[in-house]
């Protein structure tokens, strides 16, 4: 089998993706023009930076540091507000023209109630999917415990968002919980159409030893990149063992092998974040080429055949299982 014969297309809740690589939320996805450029660089879908009802400045610099094994960040959910993001999404769609890829709008809020309002508002831009970011670890001082920390609260947010829009809803989960499968079951029972996992891990802390001060102004920040890849793979494995909705695997994927690994534990698509900076925006094309070559070598001709190969027989996230 040659790489050209491999069918890389996949789908999330009926939304078709030409390949399983997606721009992860929070990575360069502020402007419509940049989102369109990411699509030109080969991404299967793009996800906007998370937006809230009102504009936010986020945390003061330094907010992102590459520590070698990975990246630590506390950008603090800076965003121009949902009204501006509606305009950016419309702009992105117009600029993509014929080469349009699905656009996922990421939203967050301070309260369960506001999650509904921001979801209703962003729906005006008619994104293909909405992602509810209930798991950013960088605003705990301001927001209190993560919404995704307890299955009950995660389910409440999911219900609120679902009742506020007709667009399919992805719920983004945190790895920083004792049992991610329980959270996944709770949000699916509350109506989540898909799950993305994971948000950044930790939070962690990085110190300058001379001044003995944390480098990030926020003191702590979420970890991403290769350092957390095995954590993300384990989380997606646990989720795909517990629920049958589509899962978008995110966390440290840098090349085609890493994408294959994530899909093999049940993901239908993979979010790319840190690698966009490490390998440049062309990373989507590179990863897709590498994935096709690897699949051809393994004799696997479609994403559907690759998916869930690493899951136990009968796992709900394995194609063909009747769960």
């Amino acid at each position: 089998m040659s790489p050209e014969e491999v069918d890389l297309s996949t789908a999330i809740c009926g939304v078709h993706l030409r390949n399983p690589t997606m721009l992860a939320s929070g990575i360069v996805g502020l402007s419509g023009e940049v989102l369109a450029r990411v699509a030109r660089c080969g991404a299967g879908a793009v996800v906007t930076k998370s937006c809230s009802l009102k504009p936010r400045v986020g945390h003061p610099n330094p907010v992102v540091v590459d520590y070698g094994a990975g990246v630590i960040n506390a950008v603090g959910l800076s965003n121009p507000g949902v009204e501006a993001m509606v305009a950016e999404i419309r702009d992105a769609r117009e600029l993509m023209g014929e080469e349009r890829v699905p656009i996922v709008a990421s939203v967050f809020a301070h309260s369960i109630y506001d999650f509904g309002t921001v979801a209703r508002y962003i729906s005006e831009a008619e994104p293909d999917l909405i992602e509810a970011n209930i798991s950013c670890p960088n605003v705990e001082e301001e927001f209190g415990q993560l919404f995704s920390s307890t299955p009950y609260v995660a389910a409440q947010v999911t219900r609120r968002v679902k009742s506020s829009t007709n667009i399919p809803v992805i719920v983004k989960l945190s790895p920083n919980v004792p049992n991610i499968a329980e959270v996944a079951k709770a949000v699916v029972a509350a109506g989540a159409d898909a799950i993305s996992a994971v948000n950044t891990a930790g939070p962690g802390m990085l110190l300058d030893v001379e001044s003995a001060r944390p480098v990030l102004t926020n003191r702590v920040g979420g970890l991403s990149g290769p350092a957390i890849r095995p954590l993300a793979v384990r989380c997606v494995y646990d989720i795909a063992n517990a629920v049958s909705v589509p899962v978008i695997g995110i966390g440290g994927q840098s090349d085609g092998r890493d994408v294959a690994e994530m899909i093999s534990v049940g993901a239908v698509a993979v979010g790319v974040g840190t690698a966009v900076y490490r390998r440049g925006m062309e990373v989507f094309r590179h990863m897709t080429t590498e994935l096709a070559e690897l699949m051809a070598r393994l004799g696997i001709d479609s994403i559907e055949r690759l998916r869930g190969r690493g899951l136990p027989a009968g796992a709900p996230g394995r194609p063909g299982s009747d769960a």
Binding site: I27, V28, G29, L30, E33, V64, D66, N73, S78
Partner: peptide, 20 residues
Amino acid sequence: MKCGFGICGQCAMGDKLVCK
């Protein structure tokens, strides 16, 4: 600029990132 090296997207100018 926020991150300074092409992650956050804050410095977008058209389809370019000024930092990177």
